[in-house]
Simulated scan of single mutants.
Amino acid sequence: MRLIFMGTPEFAVPALDALVAAGHEVAAVYCQPPRPAGRGKALQPSPVQRRAEALGLDVRTPVTLRDAGEQARFAAVGADAAVVAAYGLILPGPILAAPRLGCFNIHASLLPRWRGAAPIQRAILAGDAVTGVTIMDMEAGLDTGPMRATVEIGIDRKTAGELTAELADKGAALMVTVLGDLAAYPPQLQPEEGVTYASKVDKAEARLDFAAGAEAAERQVRAFNPAPGAFFELGGERIRVLSAEVVHDLDANPAAEPGGKTGGPGFGRDDAGLVLDDRLLIGCGTDALRPTTVQRAGRGAMSADALLRGFPIPPGTRLS
Protein backbone atom coordinates (compact mmCIF):
# COMPACT_ATOMS: atom_id res chain seq x y z
CA MET A 1 0.00 0.00 0.00
CA ARG A 2 0.90 3.65 -0.30
CA LEU A 3 0.87 4.83 3.31
CA ILE A 4 1.15 7.88 5.49
CA PHE A 5 2.69 7.12 8.88
CA MET A 6 1.87 9.31 11.88
CA GLY A 7 3.75 8.86 15.16
CA THR A 8 6.12 10.67 17.49
CA PRO A 9 7.68 8.74 20.45
CA GLU A 10 9.84 5.64 20.63
CA PHE A 11 6.69 3.50 20.90
CA ALA A 12 5.93 4.25 17.23
CA VAL A 13 9.37 3.46 15.78
CA PRO A 14 8.94 -0.35 15.53
CA ALA A 15 5.72 0.15 13.56
CA LEU A 16 7.44 2.42 11.05
CA ASP A 17 10.28 -0.09 10.64
CA ALA A 18 7.84 -2.98 10.25
CA LEU A 19 5.80 -1.22 7.56
CA VAL A 20 8.91 -0.42 5.55
CA ALA A 21 10.24 -3.96 5.97
CA ALA A 22 6.91 -5.39 4.81
CA GLY A 23 7.29 -3.58 1.48
CA HIS A 24 4.75 -0.81 1.93
CA GLU A 25 5.50 2.57 0.38
CA VAL A 26 5.63 5.10 3.21
CA ALA A 27 5.04 8.25 1.19
CA ALA A 28 5.10 10.67 4.14
CA VAL A 29 5.82 10.57 7.86
CA TYR A 30 4.04 12.97 10.20
CA CYS A 31 5.33 13.63 13.72
CA GLN A 32 5.21 16.43 16.24
CA PRO A 33 7.70 19.28 15.82
CA PRO A 34 11.11 19.16 17.55
CA ARG A 35 10.93 20.15 21.22
CA PRO A 36 13.51 21.79 23.54
CA ALA A 37 15.37 19.16 25.57
CA GLY A 38 18.54 18.72 27.60
CA ARG A 39 20.43 21.26 29.64
CA GLY A 40 20.87 23.61 26.70
CA LYS A 41 17.18 23.32 25.75
CA ALA A 42 18.16 22.86 22.11
CA LEU A 43 15.44 21.65 19.76
CA GLN A 44 15.48 17.86 19.52
CA PRO A 45 13.68 15.84 16.84
CA SER A 46 11.39 13.05 18.03
CA PRO A 47 12.44 9.39 17.81
CA VAL A 48 10.14 8.89 14.82
CA GLN A 49 11.57 11.89 13.00
CA ARG A 50 15.13 10.66 13.54
CA ARG A 51 14.27 7.18 12.28
CA ALA A 52 12.29 8.43 9.28
CA GLU A 53 15.11 10.72 8.23
CA ALA A 54 17.58 7.84 8.55
CA LEU A 55 15.33 5.85 6.21
CA GLY A 56 15.26 8.72 3.72
CA LEU A 57 11.52 9.31 4.09
CA ASP A 58 9.62 12.56 3.65
CA VAL A 59 9.12 13.97 7.17
CA ARG A 60 6.49 16.56 8.02
CA THR A 61 6.12 18.25 11.43
CA PRO A 62 3.09 20.58 11.34
CA VAL A 63 2.04 22.29 14.55
CA THR A 64 -1.61 21.63 13.72
CA LEU A 65 -3.65 19.69 11.19
CA ARG A 66 -6.63 22.05 11.39
CA ASP A 67 -5.23 24.38 8.74
CA ALA A 68 -6.94 23.92 5.36
CA GLY A 69 -3.66 24.19 3.50
CA GLU A 70 -2.10 21.45 5.63
CA GLN A 71 -5.15 19.27 5.07
CA ALA A 72 -4.87 19.74 1.31
CA ARG A 73 -1.18 18.82 1.45
CA PHE A 74 -2.07 15.67 3.38
CA ALA A 75 -4.74 14.67 0.88
CA ALA A 76 -2.38 15.32 -2.03
CA VAL A 77 -0.21 12.38 -0.93
CA GLY A 78 -2.91 10.11 -2.34
CA ALA A 79 -2.45 7.51 0.39
CA ASP A 80 -4.30 4.23 0.50
CA ALA A 81 -4.25 4.39 4.31
CA ALA A 82 -2.72 6.23 7.25
CA VAL A 83 -1.19 4.31 10.15
CA VAL A 84 -1.19 6.19 13.45
CA ALA A 85 0.81 5.28 16.58
CA ALA A 86 0.97 7.76 19.47
CA TYR A 87 1.05 10.75 17.12
CA GLY A 88 -0.11 13.23 19.75
CA LEU A 89 -2.35 15.48 17.66
CA ILE A 90 -6.10 15.15 17.09
CA LEU A 91 -6.96 14.23 13.51
CA PRO A 92 -9.78 16.45 12.18
CA GLY A 93 -12.45 15.11 9.85
CA PRO A 94 -10.77 16.04 6.54
CA ILE A 95 -7.61 14.21 7.61
CA LEU A 96 -9.54 11.09 8.66
CA ALA A 97 -11.41 11.07 5.36
CA ALA A 98 -8.45 11.62 3.04
CA PRO A 99 -6.88 8.13 2.75
CA ARG A 100 -8.77 5.77 0.45
CA LEU A 101 -9.13 3.04 3.11
CA GLY A 102 -9.13 5.30 6.16
CA CYS A 103 -6.83 5.72 9.16
CA PHE A 104 -5.75 2.84 11.39
CA ASN A 105 -4.51 3.30 14.94
CA ILE A 106 -2.19 1.16 17.07
CA HIS A 107 -3.52 1.69 20.59
CA ALA A 108 -1.70 0.33 23.64
CA SER A 109 -4.61 -1.20 25.52
CA LEU A 110 -7.39 -3.74 25.15
CA LEU A 111 -10.20 -1.41 24.16
CA PRO A 112 -12.60 -0.20 25.39
CA ARG A 113 -10.49 -0.24 28.57
CA TRP A 114 -8.08 2.69 28.82
CA ARG A 115 -9.04 4.95 25.99
CA GLY A 116 -6.88 8.05 25.99
CA ALA A 117 -3.36 9.36 26.41
CA ALA A 118 -1.67 7.13 29.01
CA PRO A 119 -3.07 3.58 28.77
CA ILE A 120 0.13 1.81 29.82
CA GLN A 121 0.64 3.81 33.01
CA ARG A 122 -3.05 3.60 33.94
CA ALA A 123 -3.13 -0.16 33.50
CA ILE A 124 -0.16 -0.57 35.85
CA LEU A 125 -1.52 1.87 38.44
CA ALA A 126 -4.88 0.09 38.47
CA GLY A 127 -3.22 -3.26 39.12
CA ASP A 128 -4.49 -4.80 35.88
CA ALA A 129 -3.20 -8.34 35.30
CA VAL A 130 -3.19 -8.04 31.51
CA THR A 131 -3.07 -5.39 28.83
CA GLY A 132 -2.41 -5.46 25.12
CA VAL A 133 -2.66 -3.71 21.77
CA THR A 134 -5.73 -2.94 19.67
CA ILE A 135 -5.70 -2.15 15.95
CA MET A 136 -8.69 0.08 15.27
CA ASP A 137 -10.30 2.21 12.59
CA MET A 138 -10.09 5.84 13.58
CA GLU A 139 -13.10 8.14 13.89
CA ALA A 140 -13.79 11.51 15.50
CA GLY A 141 -14.27 10.17 19.06
CA LEU A 142 -11.44 9.49 21.50
CA ASP A 143 -10.35 5.90 20.71
CA THR A 144 -13.96 4.93 20.02
CA GLY A 145 -13.54 3.46 16.54
CA PRO A 146 -14.28 -0.12 15.47
CA MET A 147 -11.64 -2.72 16.35
CA ARG A 148 -9.83 -4.89 13.81
CA ALA A 149 -7.61 -7.09 16.00
CA THR A 150 -6.09 -7.36 19.47
CA VAL A 151 -3.17 -9.09 21.14
CA GLU A 152 -2.95 -9.63 24.91
CA ILE A 153 0.11 -9.73 27.20
CA GLY A 154 0.58 -10.09 30.94
CA ILE A 155 1.71 -7.07 32.96
CA ASP A 156 3.37 -9.06 35.78
CA ARG A 157 5.90 -6.75 37.49
CA LYS A 158 6.95 -4.90 34.35
CA THR A 159 7.74 -1.19 34.35
CA ALA A 160 6.05 1.21 31.98
CA GLY A 161 9.25 1.31 29.95
CA GLU A 162 9.42 -2.46 29.62
CA LEU A 163 5.74 -2.73 28.81
CA THR A 164 5.96 0.06 26.23
CA ALA A 165 8.76 -1.71 24.36
CA GLU A 166 6.90 -5.03 24.37
CA LEU A 167 3.62 -3.49 23.24
CA ALA A 168 5.37 -1.50 20.52
CA ASP A 169 6.78 -4.68 18.99
CA LYS A 170 3.47 -6.55 19.30
CA GLY A 171 1.54 -3.64 17.82
CA ALA A 172 3.93 -3.28 14.89
CA ALA A 173 3.63 -6.95 13.97
CA LEU A 174 -0.16 -6.92 14.35
CA MET A 175 -0.51 -3.81 12.19
CA VAL A 176 1.45 -5.45 9.37
CA THR A 177 -0.72 -8.57 9.66
CA VAL A 178 -3.97 -6.58 9.50
CA LEU A 179 -2.87 -4.46 6.54
CA GLY A 180 -1.79 -7.62 4.74
CA ASP A 181 -5.40 -8.86 4.61
CA LEU A 182 -7.95 -6.27 5.71
CA ALA A 183 -10.85 -8.50 4.65
CA ALA A 184 -9.77 -11.10 7.20
CA TYR A 185 -10.04 -8.52 10.00
CA PRO A 186 -13.43 -6.83 9.56
CA PRO A 187 -14.17 -3.93 11.92
CA GLN A 188 -16.10 -4.80 15.10
CA LEU A 189 -17.86 -2.21 17.23
CA GLN A 190 -16.38 -1.73 20.68
CA PRO A 191 -18.53 -3.06 23.54
CA GLU A 192 -20.40 -0.45 25.52
CA GLU A 193 -19.41 -2.01 28.85
CA GLY A 194 -15.95 -1.74 30.34
CA VAL A 195 -15.07 1.74 29.08
CA THR A 196 -12.36 3.50 31.10
CA TYR A 197 -10.27 6.58 30.32
CA ALA A 198 -6.50 6.91 30.61
CA SER A 199 -5.95 10.58 31.38
CA LYS A 200 -2.57 12.15 30.72
CA VAL A 201 -0.04 11.65 33.51
CA ASP A 202 0.43 14.64 35.80
CA LYS A 203 3.95 14.87 37.25
CA ALA A 204 2.42 15.43 40.70
CA GLU A 205 1.08 11.86 40.57
CA ALA A 206 4.64 10.54 40.77
CA ARG A 207 5.01 11.57 44.43
CA LEU A 208 4.86 8.28 46.33
CA ASP A 209 1.69 7.95 48.39
CA PHE A 210 2.79 5.72 51.25
CA ALA A 211 -0.60 6.00 52.96
CA ALA A 212 -2.26 4.21 50.03
CA GLY A 213 -0.49 0.94 50.84
CA ALA A 214 2.71 -0.73 49.69
CA GLU A 215 1.18 -2.47 46.68
CA ALA A 216 -0.15 0.83 45.32
CA ALA A 217 3.19 2.56 45.96
CA GLU A 218 5.07 -0.21 44.17
CA ARG A 219 2.75 0.19 41.19
CA GLN A 220 3.57 3.91 41.18
CA VAL A 221 7.25 3.01 40.97
CA ARG A 222 6.70 0.79 37.91
CA ALA A 223 4.12 3.03 36.22
CA PHE A 224 6.41 6.08 36.33
CA ASN A 225 9.62 4.32 35.29
CA PRO A 226 11.29 5.72 33.24
CA ALA A 227 9.32 8.97 33.37
CA PRO A 228 8.50 11.07 35.24
CA GLY A 229 9.94 8.86 38.00
CA ALA A 230 8.25 8.04 41.33
CA PHE A 231 9.84 9.95 44.20
CA PHE A 232 9.85 10.98 47.85
CA GLU A 233 11.40 14.08 49.38
CA LEU A 234 13.80 14.40 52.29
CA GLY A 235 15.54 17.55 53.46
CA GLY A 236 14.37 19.43 50.40
CA GLU A 237 15.88 16.86 48.05
CA ARG A 238 13.86 14.68 45.71
CA ILE A 239 14.87 10.99 45.65
CA ARG A 240 13.56 8.99 42.70
CA VAL A 241 12.68 5.35 43.28
CA LEU A 242 13.32 3.26 40.16
CA SER A 243 12.52 -0.16 41.61
CA ALA A 244 11.10 -1.43 44.87
CA GLU A 245 9.66 -4.52 46.53
CA VAL A 246 6.70 -5.01 48.81
CA VAL A 247 7.33 -6.42 52.29
CA HIS A 248 4.24 -8.09 53.73
CA ASP A 249 5.41 -8.88 57.26
CA LEU A 250 8.33 -8.50 59.65
CA ASP A 251 9.42 -12.13 59.78
CA ALA A 252 12.17 -11.55 57.24
CA ASN A 253 12.86 -8.03 58.51
CA PRO A 254 13.80 -8.35 62.18
CA ALA A 255 15.38 -4.88 62.21
CA ALA A 256 12.06 -3.20 61.47
CA GLU A 257 10.32 -1.18 64.13
CA PRO A 258 6.55 -1.67 63.74
CA GLY A 259 4.06 0.96 64.67
CA GLY A 260 0.37 0.43 65.48
CA LYS A 261 -1.45 -2.81 64.68
CA THR A 262 -4.11 -1.46 62.34
CA GLY A 263 -2.45 -2.36 59.02
CA GLY A 264 -0.93 -5.59 57.72
CA PRO A 265 1.04 -7.95 59.98
CA GLY A 266 3.45 -5.84 62.02
CA PHE A 267 2.51 -2.56 60.34
CA GLY A 268 0.04 0.21 61.11
CA ARG A 269 -1.48 3.34 59.62
CA ASP A 270 0.80 5.48 61.75
CA ASP A 271 3.79 4.00 59.92
CA ALA A 272 2.88 5.54 56.54
CA GLY A 273 6.05 7.25 55.29
CA LEU A 274 8.08 6.18 58.35
CA VAL A 275 11.48 4.58 57.80
CA LEU A 276 11.34 1.34 59.78
CA ASP A 277 14.88 -0.03 59.59
CA ASP A 278 18.43 0.82 58.56
CA ARG A 279 17.90 -0.52 55.01
CA LEU A 280 15.21 1.99 53.98
CA LEU A 281 12.11 -0.10 54.70
CA ILE A 282 9.23 2.40 54.50
CA GLY A 283 5.93 1.87 56.28
CA CYS A 284 2.83 2.15 54.13
CA GLY A 285 0.04 1.54 56.63
CA THR A 286 -0.70 -1.79 55.00
CA ASP A 287 2.62 -3.63 54.51
CA ALA A 288 5.83 -1.76 53.68
CA LEU A 289 7.94 -0.75 50.68
CA ARG A 290 11.67 -1.36 50.32
CA PRO A 291 13.26 0.70 47.50
CA THR A 292 15.98 -1.29 45.75
CA THR A 293 17.17 1.14 43.06
CA VAL A 294 17.13 4.89 43.60
CA GLN A 295 18.50 8.08 42.08
CA ARG A 296 19.46 11.45 43.55
CA ALA A 297 19.08 14.61 41.47
CA GLY A 298 21.88 14.97 38.94
CA ARG A 299 23.32 11.53 39.67
CA GLY A 300 23.08 8.07 38.20
CA ALA A 301 20.94 5.20 39.41
CA MET A 302 22.29 3.32 42.44
CA SER A 303 21.25 0.65 44.90
CA ALA A 304 19.48 1.77 48.06
CA ASP A 305 22.45 0.45 50.07
CA ALA A 306 24.80 2.70 48.07
CA LEU A 307 22.53 5.67 48.67
CA LEU A 308 22.50 5.10 52.42
CA ARG A 309 26.29 4.97 52.63
CA GLY A 310 26.54 8.59 51.50
CA PHE A 311 23.07 9.84 52.43
CA PRO A 312 21.99 8.32 55.77
CA ILE A 313 18.25 7.92 56.35
CA PRO A 314 17.96 6.49 59.86
CA PRO A 315 14.99 4.55 61.26
CA GLY A 316 12.32 6.87 62.56
CA THR A 317 12.73 9.35 59.69
CA ARG A 318 9.39 10.50 58.24
CA LEU A 319 9.44 10.84 54.46
CA SER A 320 7.19 13.23 52.56
Rank of each mutant, 00 (worst) to 15 (best):
P9I: 10
F11R: 01
V13M: 07
V20P: 09
G23A: 15
V29S: 08
C31R: 03
K41T: 06
Q44A: 12
P47C: 13
A52K: 09
A54K: 05
V59S: 02
V59T: 14
V59D: 00
P62L: 13
T64A: 15
L65K: 10
R66Q: 07
D67L: 10
A68E: 10
D80A: 14
A81R: 04
L91D: 02
A97H: 09
A98N: 02
R100A: 09
L101R: 13
H107E: 05
A108D: 04
L110S: 00
L110K: 04
G116E: 07
P119L: 10
A123W: 07
V133H: 00
M136N: 09
L142A: 07
A149E: 03
T150M: 12
I153G: 04
I155W: 02
T159Q: 01
L174A: 10
T177I: 10
A184Y: 04
A184P: 06
Y185W: 15
T196V: 02
S199M: 13
K203S: 12
A206W: 09
F210T: 02
G213D: 10
A214T: 13
E215S: 12
A217F: 11
R219G: 12
R219Y: 14
V221M: 08
R222C: 12
N225V: 05
G229E: 11
E233M: 11
E237L: 03
I239T: 09
E245I: 15
V246Y: 00
L250G: 07
A252M: 12
A256G: 09
G260M: 05
K261L: 13
R269K: 14
D270L: 06
D278M: 02
D278S: 14
L281N: 11
R299W: 05
L308I: 11
G310S: 11
F311K: 09
G316N: 06
R318K: 14
